[in-house]
């Protein structure tokens, strides 16, 4: 059994190293989602790195596709591809694209990056599972700025209509988006009420508490007849003191000096 806290910390270090090497990318929303993704890939999901297109596998769709580094780090740590590839993120001729590409990266179940589209495709996958009477589950990570996209709500309505209880959406509720706090840019609250009104089960947890995330995912598995969303309260830039709660770190890579400081902090947490 993997120590999920340690794995999340390792994923965060990978993210910092990747972004420093790439000199571009999105640290804030990748770091906020590290615990969620660690729980999914190292505890929750039935997947096989040796057989990434296994038809009965659980699926994961990173609807907030700009957090690709957190997904790539988890896939590499899980053994879908060599860790050395992480340092070639966003470089010409290498397969780790700026946003997830299912045709290029083993283990990526859906190409995403244009916000709002991932949840719609994830719901389609869940519907396919229902049609085929398969037991696989579909997991989708949504951003809290992303919910301003109308398609999120089209998908939410349809997922409830078709009773997709094999779909679990996790909302990375870090409260910040590129231009500032969600509340100032476009207030999406009250999120729990909105999702309930759309016919979803709503669970709430601390998105950095791996135990709480695990428990919520267990609960979701036993909720029948409706899709479920976990509103996971997170801190943007979590784990790197100078990035935490700073909208400015949404889409800027750390310099090598900043990366060194960040890695020291993260390694300190691990020790």
């Amino acid at each position: 059994m993997t120590n999920l806290k340690e794995m999340a910390c390792q994923i965060r270090q990978d993210i910092i190293e990747m972004l420093a090497a790439a000199k571009s990318g999105h640290p804030g929303g990748s770091l906020s989602a590290a615990d969620i993704v660690a729980v999914l890939y190292f505890s929750e999901m039935r997947i096989d790195p040796e057989n990434p297109s296994w038809p009965d596998r659980d699926r994961f769709v990173l609807s907030k596709g700009h957090a690709a580094p957190v997904l790539y780090a988890a896939l590499a740590e899980k053994g879908f591809f060599p860790r050395e590839e992480l340092l070639k993120l966003r470089q010409t001729g290498h397969f780790l694209q700026g946003h997830p590409d299912m045709k290029k990266v083993p283990g990526v179940d859906m190409s995403t990056g244009s916000l709002g589209q991932g949840i719609s495709a994830a719901a389609g996958m869940a519907l396919a599972g229902k049609i085929d009477n398969k037991s696989y589950r579909v997991y989708c990570l949504l951003g809290d700025g992303e919910v301003a996209e109308g398609l999120v709500w089209e998908a939410a309505m349809a997922a409830a209509q078709y009773k997709l209880d094999n779909l679990l959406v996790i909302l990375d509720n870090n409260g910040l988006q590129i231009d500032g706090p969600n509340k100032e840019v476009m207030n999406s609250e009250p999120l729990a009420d909105k999702w309930r009104a759309f016919g979803w089960n709503v669970l709430e947890t601390d998105g950095h508490d791996t135990g709480g995330l695990n428990a919520s995912m267990e609960v979701a598995k036993n909720l029948r007849g409706k899709p479920t969303i976990i509103l996971a309260k997170t801190v943007k830039g979590k784990g790197v003191s100078f990035m935490e709660n700073q909208a400015g770190w949404h889409g800027n890579a750390p310099s090598s000096e900043q990366a060194d400081i960040a890695l020291k902090e993260l390694r300190g947490v691990k020790a």
Binding site: R59, G116, S120, G124, L127, G129, A158
Partner: peptide, 16 residues
């Protein structure tokens, strides 16, 4: 909901 029509279709196709 045409956008969702295409998104669901993409997901269904991704699942075979």
């Amino acid at each position: 909901a045409e956008q969702n029509l295409m998104g669901f279709s993409a997901g269904l196709a991704a699942a075979g």
